[in-house]
Each structure stands twice: as C-alpha cells, then as structure tokens.
Simulated assay, not measured.
Amino acid sequence: MSVINDAVLLESRSLRASVVEQTDALDRVKVLSLLPDGMHVTTAMVAAYFQVGIKAIRSLVLDHRDELEASGYRVLTGTELSSFKELSGIQSRTRTLALFSRRTVLNVAMLLRDSEVARQVRTYLLDREYEARTQPVDNCVHSEPESLDERIDRRITHILGKTVVPMFNALIETSGEQHKELISLRDDVKRIERKLRDHHHRLRRLEQAWGPRPYTGIMASIDAMNWREFEHHVAVLLRRDGCTGIVVHGGPGDRGVDVTALTADGRSVVVQCKSFAPYRPVWSGELQKFLGAAKVQHQADVALFVATTSFTPDARAIAETHGVTVVDRGHLEKWSAGVPLPILQAD
C-alpha cells in the first residue's frame, strides 16, 4: 500500500526526475528485455513490456519528448543507424530506429496511465521512497543494519498492535451510543494491519525473486530475439572470440547447420542454433541430426550446438561421446556476457 498515491508521479516532473535513476524498479516488477547491446530497447519492446499498443508509446513520446530525451530517448538515422546495426547485430531495413535506455523506460512507467505494469512500477518506487523517509534516524552503531522486515514489524506492532487497537478496546468498553461505530473503526485498523503485512510479504518475495545476478537482463534480451536474430547473435559471439570467415546459413537449404566459421588457429567450426523456450529441452534426436551434418557432411573440427534452453541427459551423452560441444542456457548467458568459449581458444 503506497502512502502517496501513484498519481503524484504522473503529475510531477520534478518527482519523476528525482527517481529516474532507480531503474532496478523495472526488473523488480517484470524482466525488461534488452537489445543485443544490453543497453537499449525499441518502441515495440517498450510496448510489450508495459502490455500496451505501440501507438500508446508513440503518443506518449509525442507528448513528452523533451523529458524522455533528457532521460536517454533518441532516434537513430543515417550512418549512426548503420553503425548501430552493425555493432549490435540487428537485422532491420528501417531508415530510423527509436531507442529507449533503461532510464527512459522507467520515465515511461511514470507517465503511462493505462498500464497495470506501469502502475506496479510506480507503486514500487513510492513504497521504497516511503520506507526511506519513515526509517528512524539512529546514530547508534549496530553490528548489522536493521532489515526491512524488522522495521515494518516494529511499526505495525508498536503503532497498531500496542497503541491503536488497545485504545479502541478501552473506548468500546466504556462507550454508549458509539459502540458499533468504534467496533467498526477497530476492525478497519485491523484490516490495515493485515494489508501492511501482506504488502511486506510481497516486497520480500520480490526481493528474493530478483536478487543480485551477475548477468541480469542478458537472457531476457536473447529470449526476445527471433530465430534469425539469435543466429546473428551467435555469429557476433564467434567473431568476438577470434573466429573469421563467419557465414550465417540459417533457413531452408542450410544443410543442417546455421553458422560456419574458422577459429583463430584455423579449425573449422559448424554451429546449430536453437532458440527454444526455457522449458523445452533439446532432445537426443535433434543432437543426432546435427551430429550427422557436422561430422559427416561438413567434417567439422569443432561442432557447437547452442541453445537457449537445457539438453536432456541422452542428448548430453551423445554429445560427449561424439565430441559435440553443447552450449546450454547457463553457458550461453556467460558467453554472451563476455566469458570466452574454451573450445574456440587456440591450444
């Protein structure tokens, strides 16, 4: 329960500016998918995050462009757009590209009225602001900082449990005509106490679900890619790890592989890329099919099977037996974050 109504963020630009750096609020509510550069999102991605139409985002930009530009919004054209596409691996024929930084997306959350996700972001910001303002100032030295759990429990126990409710109990015992009204008011106080406790538990769940992660946002951006974008993302990673002669073959007629390349020491590389949902593993039959293409048709020195998901035990056994390197979701996240793939390094 926000003590300050979230409408204040909708109306006050100065208040929005004061919290626009708190971009972690976005991922506390819902994971924000990023472009391969790990820094920006497109208009369509912003609309998807807030579960609204693209027109709603474009209309908001039209009404608040100067504010959004101050928080990082920009439109790329010409050579700047070409350079960005090349560096980020984006495949698009558009002549302009609107980019939103994380700060800009948070700014949108504080302006967008007809979005439940945006409302939840504003509520989270205001809840945290309220906690910061109401935390007692204590100059004593503690061995450990007081937790959010302890602060909320103390406020509820001492203010509601030990003061307000007993006061109502005493009044009810001596009341006459106002007996029913006092009982009703006491019940209202108890409902507020329950809501505060529920709110506290919700915050704790959010904090546990979105605790610090070394590669926050990387897999979310990869999950947002289509199959062709994912293949080009893998090509970028191969190039970063020193490979040359990289060719993306994906689509009909690819002879069972999606990308081919040469390592820095001259070994041939073939890659199969599978952009699957995390709950759908790679099966043994799919591994066997790639094995035939990699070893028989292409006679590859290095066979990579890169997937956005896991591999079944049977698929892993086949890969280990026949020398196929599997890059599952966890390894893909680290590889995308800059950790080199050992198999591609020179001996």
Rank of each mutant, 00 (worst) to 15 (best):
residue 186 R to C: 11
residue 69 E to W: 00
residue 58 R to F: 02
residue 161 G to H: 06
residue 110 M to I: 01
residue 50 F to N: 00
residue 49 Y to W: 09
residue 112 L to R: 02
residue 119 R to M: 09
residue 219 M to Q: 09
residue 299 Q to Y: 04
residue 263 T to G: 08
residue 331 H to Q: 14
residue 106 L to R: 02
residue 117 V to S: 05
residue 251 G to L: 03
residue 199 H to Q: 12
residue 120 Q to F: 08
residue 158 H to V: 14
residue 198 D to S: 14
residue 169 N to Y: 13
residue 280 R to I: 14
residue 112 L to T: 04
residue 225 M to H: 06
residue 240 R to F: 07
residue 213 R to L: 14
residue 56 A to M: 11
residue 129 E to R: 13
residue 269 V to D: 00
residue 207 E to P: 02
residue 335 W to S: 00
residue 344 L to M: 06
residue 224 A to Y: 04
residue 343 I to P: 03
residue 84 F to E: 05
residue 240 R to M: 06
residue 59 S to Q: 14
residue 199 H to G: 14
residue 305 F to V: 03
residue 153 D to W: 03
residue 219 M to D: 04
residue 161 G to D: 07
residue 225 M to D: 04
residue 73 Y to S: 07
residue 248 V to A: 11
residue 327 V to K: 01
residue 223 D to Q: 08
residue 8 V to H: 09
residue 41 V to K: 01
residue 70 A to H: 06
residue 95 R to P: 02
residue 27 D to V: 05
residue 114 D to Q: 15
residue 292 G to R: 07
residue 343 I to V: 15
residue 165 V to I: 15
residue 214 P to R: 14
residue 58 R to G: 09
residue 315 A to Y: 03
residue 83 S to H: 14
residue 172 I to P: 01
residue 239 R to Q: 13
residue 42 T to M: 04
residue 7 A to F: 07
residue 266 G to L: 02
residue 255 R to H: 14
residue 175 S to I: 03
residue 152 I to G: 00
residue 130 Y to V: 02
residue 74 R to F: 09
residue 323 G to M: 04
residue 268 S to P: 03
residue 136 P to H: 08
residue 216 T to F: 07
residue 7 A to G: 15
residue 77 T to A: 08
residue 78 G to R: 08
residue 120 Q to I: 07
residue 113 R to C: 04
residue 171 L to F: 13
residue 145 P to F: 05
residue 140 C to G: 15
residue 237 L to A: 01
residue 18 S to W: 04
residue 5 N to K: 11
residue 97 L to D: 08
residue 203 L to W: 02
residue 187 D to K: 10
residue 35 L to R: 05
residue 233 H to L: 15
residue 98 A to S: 14
residue 59 S to C: 07
residue 65 R to L: 08
residue 247 V to H: 14
residue 312 T to Y: 05
residue 93 R to G: 05
residue 107 N to K: 05
residue 100 F to T: 04
residue 192 I to D: 04
residue 120 Q to C: 07
residue 250 G to D: 10
residue 297 Q to A: 15
residue 45 M to H: 05
residue 271 V to M: 07
residue 210 W to Y: 11
residue 210 W to R: 13
residue 279 Y to G: 12
residue 84 F to C: 05
residue 279 Y to A: 15
residue 308 T to W: 01
residue 5 N to L: 10
residue 22 Q to W: 11
residue 205 R to H: 13
